[in-house]
Nucleic acid binder design. Structure first.
Length: 563
DNA sequence: GCCGTTTTCGGCCCGACTGTTTTCAGTCG
């Protein structure tokens, strides 16, 4: 069933964690459920296919949570959840979505005013009933109304590219100085919740400027300030240059990664905070101007930001066996681009010129096939004309345009062009563009049928997701990965910030099986070739080395793969 | 509830900012 089902089980474990939070339960028990949920969410194996012994092998899953998972898989619920739901109105956790409201406040609101929904909370705040509760005042009442307004028109998470643009805009209007992105933006996640920035500029010089541009000041202090800007939350941390590394490390996270590092610090008689390492014995603060120093002092090799997710990277840093991650400079070409032959804006000649500028050795021209209704596609005749044009253009350029196609995978797994046409091409991408809502088995077999065609070299945007707009198709990823390995078909990492497909978890699993990854920008316009950067970031998040990536290879090696 | 090159019991990351205080709780990252 793939990950849809795992996500359902993970949601239930998270619901238990939230209900326990409101019940003011042991915080470590709550964290255990959250970690368990995360482990389930990230499991490539369908959780329902795993035995109790299998489950116990997973880090973060012990006896209690294993039994809960088994019960949820078999009956749809479990004892822990049921007994919590008897005690607490099930929709009460939605109050936690309001900024500034935590478990203690939810308890008070519920017990004193019988508030169980955001709607009731808003009514209570408007009629000034919140301030009648001991410990809450008029300021809190106003804060709640503001936070509810924000919650109502919350625009959700940003794309990586949007977050970058907003972050750069903020920095451009602040006093000159040293600034670094931190948080999920620095880690290169495909979606970003809020934007974190570290600077060596002092708060006194930055805060007045922030006050001018902010739509709202959330917090304002000498160590950190938070604002709303263009509907997004921005957190800025002011760091002493001598402590910059520790501060950047802290704000980069992830939270779970930070906890791992701090636990490790404790085991070495140190305490890690955002200023440095505190020697427990001498009480001396070891300041860390760069991140490397923190890692060194903890006996770890440097962990690249993209890996800081508590997915085993700390243990690998300890044994100095972290992978050498692929870098942008390793990329020798783009393996997915559209020309005026279909729905792109560039001629073949312009494409080659751009490739020269980018110092690429090759660009795969992969226009749509004519079978595709939504985009103007190439017929076999059109393709022949294009191939002729490519041969002529290539004589005048260092960057070679490769003859290719993005051929449609029809609903039964056949391709949109005959084999005789495909066999003349350098490299063939096959993608699903229509009938995306097939059931798991049908769409999985459809894709595998395409892979089994000897001419297909790459599967384009494998899950078909459009971030925030279209869910991934329900393909059975373990079967797809195994088929990709067996048929020696590469899977695309589509570098468009709207797709980033495959995502990090799937990439990590793919390369562990020895599946090759092809990064393509799917560029339709000149500027979109720069999206390669997002592809490389995502590949790094998936633990990919240069060797795992098809377009780090020379043109001859590439042609060998596509043969 | 999870976990173990000190431990199967006793730990479990750390600090900033705000509001309602009367010395600190709650929330957040």
């Amino acid at each position: 069933m793939g990950r849809g089902e795992n996500a359902g089980v993970a949601d239930q474990l998270e619901q238990i964690a939230q209900l326990l939070l409101i019940m003011d339960e042991n915080t470590f028990k709550i964290r255990a459920y959250q970690r368990g949920a995360e482990a389930v969410r990230q499991s490539l194996q369908p959780i329902s296919s795993m035995s109790r012994a299998d489950l116990l092998q997973v880090r973060g899953i012990g006896k209690g949570i294993a039994d809960a998972i088994i019960s949820i898989v078999e009956t749809g619920t479990c004892n822990e959840l049921e007994s919590l739901m008897e005690k607490i109105p099930p929709q009460l956790p939605e109050l936690l979505e309001i900024d500034g409201i935590g478990p203690k406040t939810v308890q008070k609101l519920w017990r004193h005013l019988n508030i169980t929904s955001i709607q009731e909370l808003e009514a209570a705040a408007r009629s000034h009933r919140i301030r009648t509760i001991r410990g809450l005042g008029d300021k809190k009442e106003e804060e709640i109304l503001r936070a509810i307004a924000v919650h109502k028109n919350r625009s959700g998470r940003m794309l990586l590219s949007e977050a970058e643009a907003i972050g750069e805009e903020i920095i451009s209007v602040l006093p000159p100085g040293r600034y670094s992105f931190a948080g999920s933006l620095r880690r290169g996640r495909s979606t970003i919740g809020d934007i974190d920035i570290v600077t060596t500029n002092p708060a006194v010089s930055v805060n007045p400027r922030l006050r001018e541009i902010a739509s709202e000041m959330i917090d304002e202090g000498m160590k950190k300030t938070s604002i709303f800007f263009k509907g997004k939350r921005i957190d800025i941390r002011f760091a002493d240059p001598a402590e910059y590394g520790a501060t950047l490390l802290y704000l980069t996270g992830s939270k779970e990664f930070n906890i791992r590092l701090r636990e490790r610090a404790i085991s070495r008689g140190l305490r890690l905070n955002e200023y440095g390492l505190l020697d427990q014995r001498t009480k001396e603060l070891i300041k860390c101007p760069d991140e490397e120093m923190v890692f060194r002092r903890l006996g770890l090799s440097f962990v690249p930001p993209e890996l800081r997710e508590d997915r085993g990277e700390v243990a690998r840093a300890e044994s100095d066996t972290l992978p050498f991650l692929v870098e942008l400079k390793n990329i020798r070409g783009d393996l997915h681009a559209h020309s005026t032959g279909s729905d792109g804006t560039m001629t073949i000649s312009e494409m080659a010129g751009l490739g020269d500028q980018l110092s690429y050795e090759y660009i795969l021209c992969s226009d749509h096939s004519a079978s595709l209704g939504v985009a103007r596609g190439l017929s076999p005749e059109g393709l022949k004309r294009q191939d002729h044009e490519i041969e002529i253009v290539n004589r005048d350029h260092t960057c070679q345009i490769l003859k290719g196609i993005e051929v449609d995978i029809l609903s039964d797994g056949r391709l949109g062009l005959p084999d005789a046409v495909l066999s003349d091409l350098d490299c063939v991408i096959a993608s699903i563009h229509s009938v995306l809502h097939q059931d798991t088995d049908s769409i999985t077999r459809r894709m595998i049928t395409a892979m089994e065609n000897e001419h297909v070299d790459i599967i384009g945007h494998p899950t078909g997701r459009l971030i925030g707009r279209r869910e991934p198709s329900s393909i059975d990823m373990p079967r797809i990965l195994a088929a990709a390995r067996d048929t020696e078909t590469a899977l695309e990492l589509n570098a468009s910030p709207y797709r980033l497909d495959l995502d990090d978890i799937y990439l990590k699993n793919a390369i562990e099986l020895g599946v090759t990854i092809a990064i393509g920008t799917d560029a339709h316009r000149p500027l979109e070739y720069a999206h390669m950067r997002y592809g490389v970031l995502t590949a790094r998040r998936g633990w990919c080395r240069a060797d795992d990536i098809l377009n780090t290879k020379s043109i001859n090696e590439l042609m060998d793969f596509c043969r």
